[in-house]
């Protein structure tokens, strides 16, 4: 019997001793102090807690810690050290796609998940890609433009 869950977190092998049935969201924020992972709704409706698990977008509020044993988890904190992030950051700034900012870490993770599977998305595909991420400030159009621009400026990165 073990009380240790091992997984990769932002590129480094790590372990948690929290309850395996705990929300990954809570573990990331409270045990690992990764507060870029936002808690919005706790029911998978808002996307603020989006992380990337084994290359796939996930709402960390709907993931039990035990289910990521052996997985690769990336949060905005890890992603922000990449070149791809830089391209998204520049494009989000160019279009003023950030207002209050609460949704943005999740929105950026959704942007990355989209571009990593589809480097040249259409506007409709971008809207579908971020359809699980709520933003109450921007009206989305600036975000859609930013993702489109990042995909052009970041040619070859994705």
């Amino acid at each position: 019997m073990t009380d240790t869950i091992r997984f990769r977190l932002n590129g480094e092998e790590t372990e948690s001793h929290s309850d395996p049935s705990a929300r990954l969201l809570d573990v990331l924020r409270e045990e690992f102090l990764l507060t870029g992972v936002k808690c919005g709704c706790k029911e998978g409706e808002c996307g603020a807690c989006s992380v990337i698990i084994d290359g796939q977008l996930a709402n960390s509020c709907m993931v039990a810690l035990g289910s990521v044993s052996g997985s690769d988890v990336m949060t905005i904190e890890g992603y922000s050290k990449t070149k791809r992030y830089q391209k998204l950051s520049e494009a989000y700034a160019e279009f003023s796609a950030v207002q209050c900012g609460f949704c943005i870490p999740g929105m950026v993770m959704a942007s990355e998940a989209l571009l990593s599977h589809n480097p040249h998305p259409t506007e409709e595909e971008i809207r579908e890609g971020i359809s699980g991420n709520l933003c109450r400030c921007t009206g989305y159009s600036a975000i859609v433009s930013a993702i489109k621009k990042a995909s052009e400026n970041g040619e070859g990165l994705w």
Binding site: A22, E43, M62, A64
Partner: peptide, 14 residues
């Protein structure tokens, strides 16, 4: 995705 909405401490079979 349904179970974690309640997120009660449970003995899960993953």
């Amino acid at each position: 995705t349904d179970l974690m909405i309640k997120a009660q401490p449970s003995s899960y079979l993953f």
